[in-house]
C-alpha cells in the first residue's frame, strides 16, 4: 500500500511553516504536499499545469483546504473537487481562520467533510493537527480507490 498523502492548501508562508512543524511535532510520517493557491491545488489534483506529469492514480488521503486563497478561493476549489468524478469522494477538511456562519454553511453545503478553525494558540494548533492526522489517515476508512479513477 502506498504512503498516504496529505494535501495542504495554504497560501500563508507562516502558516505553512507552522503547519509543517505541527505535523513534525506529531511525528506525522505521511507525505505532506503543499500547494499555495487554488489553481495549484486543482492542477495537482487533476494533474495539470506544473503537475501534468504526476501519476493520476495517486490522490491524497485528505485535503486540508484553506478558504481565503489567491486566484481561486477555497470554496470554488471544493466545488470543483466535488464536481469531478476523479475527486468527488476525497475527504476535504476546511482549515481556516474564519468561523463566519456563511463560510460554514457554504463549506458544508459544497460537501466538506469537516470544518476546523485554526486556533491562534500554537500549542492548540499542534494538538488539532495531530488529531486531524490521526483521524483522517489512521481511523477514517477512505473511500474505495476505484471511485477515484
Amino acid at each position: 500500500m502506498r504512503d498516504k498523502i496529505i494535501l495542504l492548501v495554504e497560501d500563508n508562508p507562516d502558516d505553512e511553516v507552522l503547519s509543517l512543524r505541527a505535523f513534525k511535532k506529531n511525528n506525522v510520517t505521511n507525505e505532506v504536499i503543499v500547494v499555495r493557491d487554488g489553481q495549484e491545488a486543482l492542477d495537482y489534483l487533476f494533474c495539470a499545469g506544473a503537475h501534468a506529469h504526476r501519476d493520476t492514480s495517486i490522490q491524497p488521503t485528505v485535503i486540508l483546504l484553506d478558504l481565503n486563497l489567491p486566484k481561486i478561493d477555497g470554496l470554488e476549489v471544493l466545488r470543483r473537487i466535488r464536481a469531478d468524478n476523479r475527486t468527488r469522494l476525497l475527504p476535504v477538511v476546511i482549515l481556516t481562520s474564519s468561523k463566519e456562519e456563511q463560510d460554514l454553511l457554504r463549506g458544508y453545503g459544497l460537501g466538506a467533510n469537516s470544518y476546523i478553525r485554526k486556533p491562534v494558540n500554537f500549542n492548540e494548533f499542534v494538538e488539532a493537527v495531530g488529531k486531524l492526522q490521526l483521524y483522517w489517515t489512521l481511523l477514517n476508512e477512505p473511500p474505495p480507490h476505484t471511485a477515484n479513477a
Binding site: 507562516d14 502558516d15 507552522l18 486556533p119
Partner: peptide, 16 residues
C-alpha cells in the same frame, strides 16, 4: 475574522 487572525497565529507560533 480571517485576515487579522492569520498574523496573530504567526506571532504566537513563531514565539513558541
Amino acid at each position: 475574522a480571517h485576515d487579522l487572525r492569520a498574523p496573530l497565529r504567526g506571532i504566537d507560533g513563531f514565539s513558541q
